[in-house]
Design a protein around this nucleic acid. Sequence first.
DNA 1: TCTTAACTTCATGATTTTGTGAAATGAGTG
DNA 2: CACTCATTTCACAAAATCATGAAGTTAAGA
Lengths: 169, 169
Amino acid sequence: MSVAPESQRDPTAVLKFIERYAGHLADAGMQRMAARVFVALLCEDSGRMTATDMAELLQVSPAAISGAVRYLSHANMVEREREPGSRRDYYVVNDDLWYDVVTRREQLMHRWEITMREGMEILGEHTPAGLRWKETLEFYAFMHERLPQFMAEWRERRAELHRKWGLTD
Amino acid sequence: MSVAPESQRDPTAVLKFIERYAGHLADAGMQRMAARVFVALLCEDSGRMTATDMAELLQVSPAAISGAVRYLSHANMVEREREPGSRRDYYVVNDDLWYDVVTRREQLMHRWEITMREGMEILGEHTPAGLRWKETLEFYAFMHERLPQFMAEWRERRAELHRKWGLTD
DNA sequence: TCTTAACTTCATGATTTTGTGAAATGAGTG
DNA sequence: CACTCATTTCACAAAATCATGAAGTTAAGA
């Protein structure tokens, strides 16, 4: 057994869901258009769309898609694919989405560490304020230490679920 | 042995660090003024300041502080304290900062789950797109399941560090 | 009760961000 | 090499965000 076909979907309801979830992401700091594009891709069975498709679906200009997609590529949340002998770019969400998002975020925070270390030194490593930043650095170190194990276990769980759901990967 | 006094700090360097780190937080989606206020508090030995102090330190109007502080209270990143018989509010960063921030973020994401579940149903639970959202829900469930253990271990590590640093808590 | 200090609210102006249309780019096709 | 079509770039306009000053509110102290 594999997955069901898309059957009958209510396109309006899908659009509404895209807006709602993109709103959550925007609240969390993602650019609004980037969030809409990203969620739209997540709602596509294939996880792939061309810029033109997205522009039509979301009722925005191709230029807006272009900008959003640049942001998302930069953040490694989508990849660009071009089929040989075609002039259309497909944008694709990664299959192992959450692994990537979490990994990416960790790399981002790593850059913050440099700034924090400077701050600690400016404040004085043995002052109360300096120690607060030292503790923060330790917290990040702790996360960094534990994350690989955590993500490995997630991958294992994910594989189990896919078996249960009859997916072949 | 306890911690050193603040000794000689370069106020300009501290200000610069505040701006730099607040910039990171702003990039990650936090309101800029809220980020500045938050970082300023983290750089204060006592972790406490009045609105007036902050306005002077950051060279902004009291109104800006008021708005920032509303945001931060709402996000549970600072608390308001008033000493009896005084008309000054002190704003305070939590001592166990990272525990709180992580916990809070988890609660935020819990609200996203409701939206995701709707999306899954609109798309059809057994379609490829529906399954993608189902997997996302599972990922959050997995995190939710593991987080308490993780945070408990952090607290333990933190206690160790505080012992090592000669802090009494 | 009147004054003063600390903070908040609100309307306004400034800045920044965002999305658009139009022109440019560039890759495939005849 | 010219044509076509998907995408990108860019200047600009619209919209959202932000910080401010001024007025308003609340509570302490005289």
